[in-house]
């Protein structure tokens, strides 16, 4: 018989982040974004609005992109978290470099994570699906053309 899970005060949680089990001390009201950054030193996910509007803090939860500013750390228990630090030398990252798909780089982690999820979940995505997914992230530096080329270079190889 399953029981009610309870987190009523600050306490220790175990999270699985980038394949590693990590222990963190959190309040139930703490956001996953803040815990990743402040406690685990995973600062790739960026706070850009803390309101779910910009996508700079996007991470993967069980392979799906989630804005970590809109998720409690306690919600992550039992799920696999992947941050941009969990990707290394992927074709997508290479494509972002070769296509000049970033300028200041602040939105880049979020874009890359979202693109990676898209390439995994919909490897044959058409333009409409790409557009639907990537609208979730804001970039103020580029005009988006380069980001589109980067994701297409990965999708079209599939």
């Amino acid at each position: 018989m399953l029981e009610t899970q309870k987190y009523v005060e600050t306490g220790l949680l175990e999270l699985v982040v980038n394949g590693e089990k990590r222990s963190v001390m959190v309040r139930p009201a703490d956001l996953l974004l803040d815990v990743l950054r402040d406690q685990l030193g995973l600062t790739g996910a960026k706070p850009g609005c803390k309101n779910g509007d910009c996508g700079a803090c996007t991470i993967l939860v069980d392979g799906w992109p989630i804005k970590s500013c809109l998720m409690l750390a306690v919600e992550a228990v039992g799920h696999e978290i992947t941050t941009v630090e969990g990707l290394n030398g992927t074709p997508l990252q290479q494509a972002f470099v070769s296509e000049f798909a970033f300028q200041c780089g602040y939105c880049t982690s979020g874009f890359i994570i979202n693109c990676q999820a898209l390439a995994n979940i919909h490897p044959q995505a058409d333009e409409a699906i790409i557009r639907e997914w990537l609208q979730s992230n804001l970039c103020r530096c580029t005009g988006y053309e380069e980001i589109g080329k980067a994701i297409l270079s990965v999708i079209s190889k599939n």
Binding site: L42, K46, E85, N88, V97, F102
Partner: peptide
Amino acid sequence: KSIPKKESWDKVTGAAKYNTDFN
């Protein structure tokens, strides 16, 4: 020449540090 930015790989791996990333 279209030489990629020197800090490119830092920026695509989350390793690039901005001011609020320091604690």
